[in-house]
Amino acid sequence: MSDTIHVLTVDDSASMRALLRAALTSRGYMVTQAEDGVAALEWLSDSAEEIDVIVTDINMPRMDGFGLIEALRSQVRFRDCPILVLSTESSDEKKARARSAGATGWIVKPFDADKLDTALRRVTH
């Protein structure tokens, strides 16, 4: 892995994607963004680029975050890739479902860029 951490963020909100991009690029991350689970899987399928960590929303059209996590964990290539959920939701039920699907952790929106940075570095090292 190079020193630069490559993050794939998956969120249907254009405004949230812009906030994430600004927060992550200013902290030295390389950022790729997808607007939902389907777009993320398509990009990952077509791209030869290495992704170090995935940050995904839950409530998204076409394919939600749970579906994305399950789809990724079914592929050998992404079996060990850290996947963090970033969601406005915080119920134990949803967290348990994410954990069962194979998520690495859960971050509650609104996100604190410094806490997100710490979590990303922790799960990628």
Binding site: K95, W106, I107, P110, D112, A113, K115
Partner: peptide
């Protein structure tokens, strides 16, 4: 603690 709470599984 306004938000951004992190829980690693």
């Amino acid at each position: 603690q306004v938000g951004g709470e992190v829980e690693l599984f």
